[in-house]
Design a protein around this nucleic acid. Structure first.
Lengths: 349, 349
DNA sequence: AGTTAGCACTCTCGCATGATGAGTGCTAAT
DNA sequence: ATTAGCACTCATCATGCGAGAGTGCTAACT
């Protein structure tokens, strides 16, 4: 009341920082005594209490009850992340370890995704989120027709992002593999780099079998375009559930529901539009209600600004922001490099 | 003590059946009074108690504590499943609904798998397990080489089971698409229906590029053969967690760990070897320790005896065995039909 | 011999009670 | 501005008690 400056003193910042770190570490409200005991501040508990009081006035801290220690508020975490954290980097030893793991899976995109998720989950002890790299407007790169047996053909489609799609095609009159190859060779040239709407159009210029194939391709692309909005994989749930936050029954279920519905992705997608964007949402900063007690760190990775995906970490607001942020950033760059190597024409940097 | 017959009287069977059903339904130990209240047995609570005592002597029932009602033991469930259940069928209305859903996804194998899992989870309120259809010894059906850009080729491989695998191939000297097509045409004829070991052998008869391709194919097949032992998807976890059994914190985590490691599949695999086998493991009947308080119903589906997969339900021992068993059986047949349609040459029955 | 009524007994569950202890906020002294 | 001292608050835990559900046993009944 007396002291209403918006600036925090050096010591207050230090205390806030220590409280956040201590609380993130132990999971229990931290009191003035405990703070003095563990860290060497040159001051008495009473002084710390005064500062804590001020921090509470500024809404960076709160008590659960009158007689418990302090816990950071969402704004407290926010202040910590923005002003007290510097620019955290993944330790060199860790970088080497991670790079080595990536070199193992070489250029396998799907395997790299899994690995990225595993690394993120491991580093943060929380849930890793990842959506595969997709083009905003997928176009055709190549397709093949493979005769499985009479009346049944396997259609394989490779799109701009390098994703492989497959679909079965039923036909009334048998077509042999030679004809299939001939057809696909011709059509491939026609529809290369086309979007599904253009292909739909192109289909109308053909007849019978060719038209059927083109329509199937258009449909397949449209379908995956819709689905790609809902594809968000997660990893590390079982480890995350070890956290005390989640030990209570219903929370696990609620968390699963958040992850499963496509809702999460559609909330996150518009928040990080540009490649290399990295955003942090702490508790109430999340737009969706279910995430009010969670923290989300999310980044967009990608080869070009066309072919991109999302990756990040979801955990309780009480999470190790330093390690989480640095790891998300680092892994996101690694994935971007990898994709650039696969997609773009310039060599990796 | 006086009465030690191994046979259960008509009434005792009826009581056991009702106890199982009531307990499965309510989740709470059932007492003599409650049973009389809900169902019209023509006898008094005391009589029921006597019979309960006998059922307990036979180890079909147990009390949690002296003053609680009875709960079925694992053997109780076993007796129920074997002798009191008849041969449960999925109700016609349900069959129609399910068949209709399947007709929507038509012949898309991947989508059918998902649907099957969803149906199982829905019907039982528990966790659906499903492993994709794989051949024990996968052989090559067809492969394609697609030039993505200089030095980078996409290899697409279709195996006997109809599964599509993809892999990137790095080469030092650029090869144009024409050459790729020519190469693949020739090699396709050579290695059709070969296993990975044979391909490996075949690779040694070729040089440079062709050898590289064949080796990559062999490696890819070998890799997926190993992985297919670990591929078991689950569905419906979040719903299952609503059950009181799972409401306690740590259980959810334990359950996730069981599902995630490939351990579960490798335990289950040898138990159901033949197509259309359906087996039930109740609590302690499970070989693995983590499953001691769960019930598993698992069946093998497949087009032929070569190309098969597993599907089933995992839940607490207290689960609706009637609906679960009938649904597993029904869906398993549906999937088999579907696969037969895609793989085998005879039309679906 | 099987069934039933009656009754004492057991054990869980929920609730109130009280002691403990960590931690605070305030005041006055430094 | 900092600190010591102290009264006060409130979660947590153990304890104790009453209520209720359900049993097991015995003796009477058909």
């Amino acid at each position: 009341m007396i002291h209403m400056s918006d600036e925090l003193s050096e010591r207050q910042q230090k205390i806030l920082k220590l409280i956040v770190q201590e609380y993130v570490h132990t999971g229990r409200a931290v009191g003035s005594k405990a703070l003095i005991d563990r860290y060497k501040l040159g001051v008495s508990p009473a002084t710390v209490r005064n500062d804590m009081g001020i921090l509470e006035d500024q809404a960076f801290l709160q008590h659960p009850h009158t007689s418990a220690g302090r816990v950071p508020t969402d704004s407290g975490y926010r202040y910590y992340v923005e002003n007290l954290l510097g620019n955290p980097r993944v330790p060199m030893s860790e970088q080497i370890r991670i790079r080595h793991q990536f070199s193992q899976v070489e250029m396998q995109v799907a395997a790299s995704m899994k690995l990225a998720a595993a690394v993120l989950a491991e580093a943060s002890g929380n849930i890793a989120l990842i959506s595969p790299p997709r083009s905003i407007q997928e176009t055709v790169r190549h397709f093949e027709l493979i005769s499985l047996r009479d009346h049944l053909i396997l259609l394989i489609l490779v799109t701009q992002s390098g994703t492989v799609h497959e679909s079965f095609l039923h036909i009334d009159d048998p077509v042999d593999q030679e004809t299939l190859s001939a057809t696909s060779r011709q059509l491939n040239d026609e529809i290369r780099d086309m979007r599904h709407t253009e292909i739909q159009l192109q289909a109308s210029r053909h007849e019978s079998f060719s038209a059927l194939v083109l329509e199937q391709i258009a449909a397949l692309m449209q379908r995956t375009e819709q689905e790609s909005t809902a594809e968000l994989h997660s990893e590390g749930l079982e480890r995350a559930l070890r956290q005390p936050e989640f030990s209570h029954g219903g929370v696990a279920q609620q968390l699963l529901e958040v992850l499963r519905g496509g809702a999460l992705l559609s909330v996150l997608l518009p928040q990080v539009r540009q490649k290399d964007d990295l955003r942090i949402f702490i508790g109430s900063e999340n737009v969706s209600d279910e995430l009010q007690s969670y923290g989300v760190i999310i980044a967009r990775y990608g080869a070009t600004s066309e072919v991109t995906g999302l990756l990040g970490i979801l955990g309780p607001t009480r999470m190790p922001y330093d390690r989480s942020i640095s790891t998300v950033r680092y892994v996101s760059h690694l994935l971007s490099d990898l994709l650039r190597h696969v997609h773009a024409d310039e060599p990796e940097q």
